[in-house]
Design a protein around this nucleic acid. Sequence first.
DNA 1: ATGAAAGCGCTAACAA
DNA 2: TTGTTAGCGCTTTCAT
Lengths: 336, 336
Amino acid sequence: MTIYDISKKAGVSIATVSRVLNGSSNVKPRTRKKVLDIIEQCGYKPNAFARGLGLNSMKTVGILCADASDLYLAKAIYYIEQNLRENGYNSVLCCTGYEIPSRKKCLNLLLSQHVDSVIMVGSNFIMNNAEDNKYVIEGAASVPIMLLNADFDCPNVYCTLCDDYKATQDATECMLDAGIKNILYLYNSTTYSGLKKLAGFQNALLTHDIPLRKEYQQCFPGSREDIDGVRDFVDKLYKEGLKFDGIVTSEDFLAIGAMNFAKANKIDVPGKLQIVGYNNSILAHCSEPNISSIDNRLEDMCIQLVKTLIGTLNQNEMPQKTIFSGELIKRGSTNF
Amino acid sequence: MTIYDISKKAGVSIATVSRVLNGSSNVKPRTRKKVLDIIEQCGYKPNAFARGLGLNSMKTVGILCADASDLYLAKAIYYIEQNLRENGYNSVLCCTGYEIPSRKKCLNLLLSQHVDSVIMVGSNFIMNNAEDNKYVIEGAASVPIMLLNADFDCPNVYCTLCDDYKATQDATECMLDAGIKNILYLYNSTTYSGLKKLAGFQNALLTHDIPLRKEYQQCFPGSREDIDGVRDFVDKLYKEGLKFDGIVTSEDFLAIGAMNFAKANKIDVPGKLQIVGYNNSILAHCSEPNISSIDNRLEDMCIQLVKTLIGTLNQNEMPQKTIFSGELIKRGSTNF
DNA sequence: ATGAAAGCGCTAACAA
DNA sequence: TTGTTAGCGCTTTCAT
């Protein structure tokens, strides 16, 4: 069933059918109705390939993300896909893993599929090293590239992010103000966003005239799945004599690991130890007491990202950078 | 840069370039090399739309899932996407939500995009009601449909699932054999798979000559995000006087909620209460002690599903149904 | 082993 | 308001 069949049955030309299909105003209402009826009757659906070939667009955007099974990234994908579909765009998903060559390959794959844009979900797409970011610039030469949670200055690259620096600083200051003296900062990534969080932590201490101590900034080397590993990691620090009465983390899974460490050692939370997570994910609800966690307004970011994207595709001038501020959601793992 | 440009530069016809591109054997090695060199040199990539138009396939499969942010579904999507890409297929994702009309709409959207196949991820795509399953049959008329974790008899529909019935039965029997008398079964869905699990639980009791008591089979009405709600739900049952020393659940979030209930009431796990989860997700690691959970071999299922799909698309005869068996992963929340 | 040419189904410029 | 027609870039059949 093609546009030719419909035109024949309706006794009009294919151009008219095409006009009806595309909602052109230059069609007599009666003709429109006749065509529409036939289309309905035949259950005709235009061929997306042919349309794509003509318009050089299939109304599709590529979503690149390291790992769609990651709690945080999965939520982002969910929000983004829904918003895109509401705007008439389909989503082609590519899970790249964390290696650069594989990312380049995925990006090229998407570009060769002629997606209208590429969304990179997660701060891990931007490195601290110009060489490794070249693929983004190259990609932006073909289509607009949208970054979620990353910051990168380049024409045709649009960033939507949360001020992780300030959010972490605020949370740390809350803790300091509550009288916590020895705060352990637990993190697991040195992406752009990861470093921002760390800097926020450091700045909070400096603002309070507290010297930075290296042993109070610990990078957990394991994976996000390895909560037991986090527990053991903190346990080891504790057994080695590190004294801490507060833990600020860069992700909820670290906070849960810390919580399990406390439980295993019968350390009262929040009485003797206060814990703050990041992302406000479901993990923050997995312990008793629940974990205070920084919400970085993922849904708002995703909505905004899609809005910016659609604007860009419609040739509107859109802001290159949109920054949200995070917010500490206070729960039972803290006293303040 | 099109096939014409390449053919001109190489001094051959477009047909020859096309042959080279598609690995046809009928090309003289020297010609092939010449063309390949030019292609390489120009960084030429064939236009996917044009190819799609000619072949009526863009090597793309649609993935339908209710909610890509659900822990379990997200993992499935991750595995499936990777396997598909390794086989040269792209994935178009559609998150449908849990309502039937929206599912139909998404399915039609994918079909109108001429995907080569549709994968439905999650047991919730098949209802206990023929009328509501009609859209699957209709879809199967156009392309092969792959179901993950659901069972549906229909030509051109292929199922890959886990024997949830047996897995739940086995876990329940383990508990009974360990001397647990009053087992509460906590579930949250009445999909095909949900009912199978429930039946497995019931059958275990019957096998041990224990009468079924309605109040020991409780359906949590809230969402998967609402772990606090689960805790309160169990707490209410407890406060109302229900006595139980074991809880078998249909999903890990229910188990975590039960665990938090125990913690809040200072009930020793596994001393006074034993808990079993389902899915063996990260949530099973979120409490201290960790939660024993049934692993339904999601990755194996996804790999098999893609294998079956690729076989089908290559016109091989493939089994309509593949069933895996689950396995209880024993951790600290149980004594057996 | 290679080339010419006919589609694939649609959009859009141009003509009427 | 409607129709005619030339592409879009590729695959494939049929000649050679």
